[in-house]
C-alpha cells in the first residue's frame, strides 16, 4: 500500500454498498420468479412479470458491478471465490440466463408460454439459491495457499450453505411479495398480503438457525458476539424491529411500508454479517488489506466513480419514477 492514504475502508464501503443495492433490487425481481409457481393464475403471472420488466436489467447490472468492482478493488476475493464456487457460479449464471431471456420470450410466446414461465421460475430459484450458498461459503471460509484457492470442487456445498441458500430463497420471496403489495391492487394484492406472513415466518426460522449455528462453527464469530457486550447487538435488534414494523404494517393493510420494512430486515442482517466477519474478507486467512489491489488502481477508479455514480443513481431513480404507480392486469408492455 504505497498510496498517499489508505483507500481500503472507502472501497470496502463502496463494494458493500454495491452488494446490498444488488441484493435489494434484484431480490424483489428474483422474488417474482420464486413466487411464480404459487401465483393464482396466468393473468397474475403476467402482471407480476410486468411489474419488474422495465427495471430488471438495471438491477442485474449491480451484480456485474459487484464482479468488476471486486476485481478492481479486492482482486483476491474475485480470484478465490470464483474458483472455489466454480460449479455454483455456473448454476447462478445458467439461472440468470434462463430468467433473463424469459422476460423477452414469454411476452412474445403463445403456446410455449408455460415453458418460459418455468424457465423464469426455475432460473430465479437456482440463481437465488446459488447466491445464498455464496454467503454461506463466505461464513464457512476457504482453503487457500499462497493467495490461491486449493480446496475441492464441492467445498461450497455443505448442510450450512444449503441452509443459507434456502434462507435466501425465503428472503427474496418476501421482498417479492411486499413489492407486489406496493405495485399491484385487487385480488393479486390481496394474495400478496396473504402469503407475506408465511414467508416472514420462514425467514425468521432461518434467521434463528443461522444465528445459532454460526457462532458454534466459528470461534472468532463467537468471541465477537459473546466475549463482551458490544454495540453490534443493535444490529439484530434492528432486524427484529423491522420485522415488528412489517407485521404491524400488514395488519393495518399499509402498502408501502411492508416493502421498506423488509429492506430493513435485509440491511440489518447484512450489517450483522459484516460485523461478524470483517476485516476478514477471504476467511479464515486474508483481510481486506491482504486482498486489496494497488493503491493507484483503487484511486484511479475511485476518482471516476465519484463523478459517475451520482448520475447513475439519478437516472436509475428517474426510471423508477417513469414506471411508478400500480401495474394493472392486461397492461402488456410488449
Amino acid at each position: 500500500m504505497d498510496s498517499m492514504f489508505d483507500l481500503v475502508p472507502i472501497w470496502a464501503g463502496i463494494i458493500g454498498f454495491g452488494i446490498i443495492m444488488y441484493v435489494l433490487m434484484d431480490g424483489f425481481d428474483l422474488g417474482q420468479g420464486i413466487l411464480f409457481p404459487f401465483a393464482r393464475n396466468e393473468e397474475d403471472r403476467d402482471t407480476m412479470m410486468n411489474s419488474v420488466a422495465p427495471v430488471w436489467d438495471g438491477n442485474e447490472t449491480w451484480l456485474v458491478l459487484g464482479g468488476a468492482g471486486l476485481l478492481a478493488a479486492f482482486p483476491l476475493v474475485y480470484t478465490v471465490f470464483l474458483p472455489a464456487l466454480y460449479l455454483g457460479v455456473f448454476v447462478l449464471l445458467a439461472g440468470l440466463i434462463f430468467r433473463g431471456v424469459a422476460f423477452e420470450f414469454r411476452f412474445k410466446a403463445r403456446t410455449s408460454k408455460y415453458l418460459w414461465s418455468w424457465s423464469f421460475s426455475v432460473g430465479s430459484i437456482l440463481a437465488t439459491f446459488a447466491q445464498g450458498a455464496v454467503v454461506g461459503s463466505y461464513i464457512q471460509g476457504f482453503e487457500t495457499e499462497n493467495f490461491r484457492y486449493v480446496g475441492g470442487a464441492f467445498d461450497w456445498l455443505t448442510p450450512f450453505t444449503v441452509l443459507t441458500g434456502l434462507g435466501m430463497i425465503a428472503g427474496y420471496a418476501l421482498l417479492g411479495s411486499t413489492w407486489l403489495i406496493l405495485k399491484t391492487e385487487g385480488k393479486l394484492q390481496a394474495w400478496a398480503y396473504r402469503i407475506t406472513p408465511k414467508l416472514l415466518a420462514m425467514v425468521v426460522a432461518v434467521f434463528i438457525a443461522i444465528s445459532i449455528w454460526t457462532p458454534l462453527m466459528d470461534p472468532m464469530v463467537k468471541a465477537r458476539w459473546f466475549d463482551q457486550f458490544s454495540l453490534i447487538w443493535l444490529l439484530p435488534v434492528g432486524a427484529l424491529l423491522s420485522m415488528v414494523v412489517l407485521v404491524r404494517a400488514l395488519i393495518k393493510r399499509q402498502e408501502g411500508l411492508p416493502f421498506v420494512a423488509t429492506m430493513g430486515i435485509f440491511v440489518f442482517t447484512y450489517l450483522g454479517l459484516a460485523a461478524s466477519k470483517l476485516p476478514y474478507i477471504v476467511p479464515p486467512s486474508y483481510t481486506l488489506w491482504d486482498a486489496a489491489s494497488a493503491g493507484e488502481s483503487q484511486l484511479f477508479l475511485l476518482i471516476g466513480l465519484l463523478f459517475v455514480i451520482p448520475f447513475v443513481l439519478m437516472y436509475t431513480a428517474w426510471t423508477y419514477w417513469v414506471f411508478r404507480g400500480k401495474v394493472k392486469a392486461g397492461m402488456g408492455y410488449h
Binding site: 468488476a68 471486486l70 476485481l71 478492481a72 474475485y78 488502481s297 477508479l301 471516476g304 455514480i309
Partner: peptide
C-alpha cells in the same frame, strides 16, 4: 483490468 471493466459497467 479491474478498473477498466468497472469503468465499462458504470459508464
Amino acid at each position: 483490468l479491474g478498473p477498466i471493466l468497472s469503468y465499462e459497467v458504470v459508464t
